[in-house]
Nucleic acid binder design. Structure first.
Lengths: 242, 242
DNA sequence: TAACGTATGTGGTCTGACCACAGTGGTCTG
DNA sequence: CAGACCACTGTGGTCAGACCACATACGTTA
């Protein structure tokens, strides 16, 4: 008994090995579904099941038609799939908001401290650009919160730790979810919005000051203050459209 | 133009909504593939693609045959799918070992501090049991390292933060991978093994002492010492069999 | 009553067929 | 000769139908 694995696993393993051995690199195009099917001796439907997994996980991007942009292409954006995973995990088990917040506190204060201590001062250019965009008065609440989440993500990116970056990216949609739910419970959303903007500037400033402890504190109060201010007792992260 | 989404997305959305609305809870069985296909008006292959995604993400477990154990069942073990995701992410981009280590440092020191500060002293029963098992002389290196990773994971579990737990679970296979690779570079592996055991005991003791700062330090030195001792300069996490 | 064996329904897989789409390359027209 | 035009080709996306292996449920039989 060869104990043969499920057919789609064969495909997944095959592609994983190609990735590990460097035969496939980000930007490359995978063989066509029909070609893979023939090469591995499995049905096209099994190939598709494997490709679907890779797509949801954010490792490939597929497009029909012809030309260089068509087919399945390795993208491997860090955290691209972590987001989908977190979303579904939240849907199935419902991470408590408190756990998400405290995880943010742990990760983001560490990131801020690392940035403050960094030898060549990180530029934080991308982060500041986002803050500038957030000054616009014409932003909807949802847009503002999306930019807010992106700002926090950009700090993780600046720190350069790919694992933390991927994790934060995965938390992003959950963060947006609870932030949106929390915004509805606030007495004066416009005031909060202005305060958040100021706090964001403070975070950048404290990081640039090079004082790790100060950076930690600024980030900590920014995140925990917002959470404390909202009325989300034991609530769970609400749904976000996929 | 209704801009209809891909068929498998419809299935994924449908199941996600059922999860969010509580119609589907862990332990429940999903409708059969043929039933879902008919209900949603999509082909069975599309249903299967969606189910495959859920399976790889660790949200469902599938079994053929009949009876209560057959079919697709919601499991939603935290981090069950994060592992697969990390694996493939590693395969595609290759997280630097240094990033994994520093992420561990951030998360695990926070966990240790939280445990030490916890009001009702956490029992750490599961963790201590693992340590007892690790005393056995008959353990292979791989087994020892697997238990090591599990011990660290058990601490995260004890802390009760589901998000951190899921993240650590996702990192587990990567951690085992670099630990295994590092063990090969050590001068005296048996000595290291004994030292790791002692350090694990120290971690438990420092947590139980209630001194958060001490717990932090113990964990920090445990993780960073092992990494520093090994010779893994810019190496990447090696492959682990799926 | 207990052992057996079949009916039933599940997921797992493959095949073949169609569709929409996007470049490609030829043809036709000015 | 240059440009616009359009059928051709190959891609992913989807569906329908057909098997298979498997595990249970239940009726039959000893």
């Amino acid at each position: 008994m060869t104990d043969e694995p499920r057919a789609w696993r064969v495909v997944l393993d095959f592609i994983e090995r190609d990735l590990l051995d460097g035969r496939l690199r980000p930007g490359d195009r995978l063989p066509g579904e029909r070609a893979l099917s023939a090469e591995l001796g499995v049905g096209r439907s099994s190939v598709r099941e494997a490709l679907r997994v890779l797509e949801v996980l954010g490792l490939i991007r597929t497009a029909s038609g012809s030309g260089p942009n068509a087919g399945a292409i390795i993208v491997a954006l860090p955290g691209g799939g972590m987001s989908a995973l977190m979303r579904l995990q939240v849907a199935a088990t419902g991470f408590p908001v408190a756990d998400i917040v405290s995880t943010r506190l742990v990760l983001e204060t560490a990131v801020a401290a690392e940035l403050a201590d960094a030898d060549p001062q990180p530029s934080l250019e991308a982060s500041v650009t986002l803050l500038d965009v957030m000054e616009s008065r014409s932003l909807s609440d949802a847009e503002f919160l999306a930019l807010d989440a992106e700002f926090h993500l950009s700090l993780a990116e600046a720190a350069g730790n790919q694992v933390i970056m991927a994790t934060m990216a995965g938390l992003r949609s959950s963060i947006e979810g609870y932030a949106r739910a929390g915004a509805a419970t606030l007495p004066s959303w416009p005031d909060t919005r202005a305060r958040l903007r100021a706090e964001h500037r403070d975070i950048v400033a404290s990081i640039r000051s090079g004082d790790a402890a100060s950076a930690r504190a600024t980030v900590h109060s920014h995140i925990s203050a917002y959470y404390a201010e909202t009325n989300l007792p034991t609530s769970r992260v609400p749904a976000t459209p996929l």
